[in-house]
Write a protein that binds this DNA or RNA. Structure first.
Length: 358
DNA sequence: AAGAACGGCAACCGCCGCAGT
DNA sequence: GACTGCGGCGGTTGCCGTTCT
């Protein structure tokens, strides 16, 4: 038997593993009376347990609709996909897996799926290639992961992939704008750190935009001259943070994934101020961060980044014109912007060349 | 064969949000 | 608005079974 040995706490209440007899008492009581107040239940049912313990035992083990046993392949994929969008929201994930409890899913994730992803070179937190080295060295992994990510997804999760791709697109656009700054600032500008690049590209959660902000802030201290990397000035930090928040808010908008043109998230002014550019396809941006986007049904209309599983099994090297990765798709999107040619070259290079570069 | 190390999982703990007062 | 009780959630612990040395 697994779990904790039975023992009593300071109040004489029993803790640890439940006995079959205790299980029977709890089930009998709830079937007859419902659980009502969990706090009152133990006394009413004649159990020497705390209410919390009873609630836990019922919801994770004794409930009649609990499905036990091995997780199916489909359940596994669902967990991975949901975790990519929701993070460690085990209870929310559990609502999408009938019969499975949050605790069971959490254990399954911690003991199996995390290791599985790590072995595949995927960061189980970010769902992106592990980025402990510099960004260029990891580009092959990024590209491979883009394909792996698509392979992993079952058709019903196209919408989730869409959201993920849209978020990544925005982050790449942010990186794009940062590079634009580099292109326009003087040679004295501090080059972007690899950590910053990694955060932008690898970050799956909007939380990491804040990490980027923190990175900028910390770097400004290290610089010692009051200036931030990328040509930002320290006094611009509040505005920068505000913009990052706005990016998050904007990425949460349901219509965000429908854009087929790259979005100008940031506009760099001549004085290096950073602000949102007005866009023909977007109106005023929200100022507060909305809640997590609701899961939406798969759409038949998918952008180039969300080709189906069969298509993704095609080796991009066999068909160079096929936009099998987010990078290539992004490159296509940027084709109409002459000023982006340099960036586009980088993308094409990244998607076609062998790395790493040391 | 025996002990150590590891893996899996049941159960607990502490925190948080919400509702009622 | 402050306080309290409660349910729910995510992180962590601790034990047993299995595998490794």
């Amino acid at each position: 038997m697994m779990g904790r040995l039975p023992y009593h706490d300071g109040n004489g209440l029993k803790k640890g593993t439940w006995t079959p007899e205790e299980d029977r008492i709890l089930v009998d009581y709830i079937q007859k009376h419902g659980h009502g107040s969990w706090r009152a239940l133990p006394q009413l049912a004649g159990l020497n347990r705390c209410g919390k313990s009873c609630r836990y035992r019922w919801t994770t083990y004794l409930r009649p609709d609990i499905k036990r046993g091995k997780f199916s392949e489909e359940e596994e994929q669902t967990i991975i996909n949901l975790h990519k969008v929701l993070g460690n929201k085990w209870s929310t994930i559990a609502t999408h897996l009938p019969g499975r409890t949050d605790n069971e899913i959490k254990n399954f994730w911690n003991t199996r799926l995390m290791k599985k992803l790590l072995q595949m070179g995927i960061d189980p937190v970010t769902h992106r290639p592990r980025t402990d080295l510099n960004i260029l060295a990891n580009l092959p992994q990024l590209l491979a992961a883009a394909n792996f990510s698509n392979l992993m997804n079952i058709p019903l999760d196209n919408a989730l992939r869409l959201q993920s791709d849209a978020a990544q697109l925005a982050k790449i656009q942010l990186l794009h704008n940062i590079l634009q700054v580099l292109g326009t600032c003087s040679s004295s500008c501090t080059p972007p750190t690899m950590e910053a690049m990694n955060l932008i590209l690898a970050g799956p959660t909007f939380q990491e935009n804040h990490q980027l902000y923190e990175l900028l802030r910390i770097n400004s201290r290290h610089e010692g001259n009051g200036n931030l990397p990328f040509g930002f000035a320290t006094h611009e930090l509040p505005q920068l943070q505000s913009n990052i928040l706005n990016i998050e808010a904007y990425q949460h908008q349901p219509q965000f994934s429908q854009y087929h043109q790259p979005m100008k998230v940031l506009k760099i002014c001549s004085n290096n101020n950073v602000q949102f550019a007005s866009s023909s396809s977007s109106s005023a941006l929200p100022t507060s961060t909305p809640p997590l986007p609701a899961l939406v049904p798969a759409s038949p209309e998918l952008p180039p980044t969300t080709v189906n599983q069969t298509e993704n099994k095609i080796n991009p090297n066999d068909n160079p014109s096929f936009p099998s990765t987010t990078f290539e798709a992004l490159g296509n999107l940027m084709d109409d912007e002459a000023s982006d040619s340099h960036w586009r070259d980088i993308i094409h290079q990244a998607s076609s060349q062998s790395w790493p570069i040391s």
